[in-house]
Amino acid sequence: MPLWWPLLLSSLLFAIGVYGVLVRRNAVLVLMGVELMLNAVNLNLVAFDAYFRDVLHGGQTFALFVIVIAAAEIGLGLAIVLLVFRTHGQIDVDTMRELADREEPAVAER
């Protein structure tokens, strides 16, 4: 199998992940987009590893690390999203605009 097949697939997956982050307003779906980006890279890593026949299996090892860290990241992300849901009542990221440079200076005091 030529190397560029998995590379192309992975870049497509990555692009879908990016697209998800950009267009989804639901915070959980945004997190899924991020997850997709990370896993697309895993595919890349494993493909390179196989291509190089890397004895240390750096790519595959890295892929494992990425999986673990992605899990931690998602756990933490969901915790934050949950917190936001409890206080804001919804998780639409577009409604969270208290922090911004405004036309007229108006900082919410709460």
Binding site: L31, M37, G77, I80, T87, H88, L99, A108, R110
Partner: peptide
């Protein structure tokens, strides 16, 4: 200002995760 703080956390997290991608 808990709400602002949580908004900051969410934004930081999302953009941080995005950029680590």
């Amino acid at each position: 200002r808990r709400l602002l703080s949580q908004e900051a956390a969410l934004k930081y997290f999302m953009l941080g995760a995005f950029s680590s991608g």
